[in-house]
């Protein structure tokens, strides 16, 4: 054995490398089959960030299809209910540049919920069929009502209503749900730039 190696150093090295390659290849191949991940985990992660309003404003029939499209490379700024915060989270997850919300798909709005003016409802069940998350209660020819705690504010029920009795009302903010706001920046001078930062901001201008 030793003799063979010392006589044919090149050949023995090749054999050793080939043997190592084969055995590691076998281990990796086995591992890939044994610990295979089913489905695309990134889609699930993207879907977890999307607000699940199922409103279709992104142009896809629900949040999951849009999540799949994002995983395939679609833009991350087509979700108005998710808003800026949602885009930032997606950008973090996918390591992409956070973009401004795409206006073609709507504006970021305060949270609203659907409200049925019950005396006007004729009980046609069209809104019930339109609601993607079963948040409307009712039966044929009796009044319908929205379970406001479940409503995501997707406004898909507004359009099918033949008597136009559904309003999208902003959710009222009580003392419990009230939020502190980030202080407004001083409009008179840019309060966030100190002298050392100023130079880097000004450099592109000061070319001449």
């Amino acid at each position: 054995m030793i003799e063979f190696i010392s006589l044919n150093p090149l050949l023995s090295a090749l054999i050793a490398l080939a043997a190592l390659g084969l055995s590691f290849g076998a281990i990796l191949g086995f591992g890939a089959v044994k610990f295979a991940v089913e489905g695309d985990p990134i889609v699930e992660q993207i879907n977890a960030i999307l607000p699940q309003t199922q409103c279709g404003q992104c142009g896809y029939p629900g949040c999951k299809p849009y999540a799949e499209a994002i995983a395939e490379g679609d833009a991350i700024n087509k979700c108005p209910p998710g808003g800026e915060a949602g885009i930032n989270e997606l950008a973090n997850l996918l390591d992409r540049e956070p973009l401004a919300l795409d206006d073609d798909h709507g504006q970021e709005d305060i949270k609203k919920v659907a409200f049925i003016r019950e005396e006007e409802c004729i009980g046609c069940t069209k809104c019930i069929q339109a609601c993607p998350i079963d948040a409307i209660l009712g039966a044929a020819k009796v009044m319908h009502t929205v379970i406001s705690s479940e409503c995501t504010g997707c406004d898909l029920c507004v359009e099918p209503c033949p008597v136009d009795c559904i309003d999208m009302l902003p959710v009222s903010v009580g003392t419990q749900a009230w939020k502190w706001q980030i202080p407004e920046r001083n409009p008179f001078y840019n309060a966030n730039i100190i002298a050392s930062d100023q130079r880097s901001v000004d450099t592109p201008k000061a070319k001449h």
Binding site: Q52, Q181, I182
Partner: peptide, 27 residues
């Protein structure tokens, strides 16, 4: 004030994620 605002934002995000999870299940 920045921290208070961010703390409420974090809390709100938790609530939103919880609601999104519920909505997803219903969907």
């Amino acid at each position: 004030q920045y921290y208070r605002a961010s703390k409420t934002d974090i809390k709100q995000r938790e609530i939103d994620h919880h609601n999104a999870e519920l909505a997803k299940r219903r969907f």
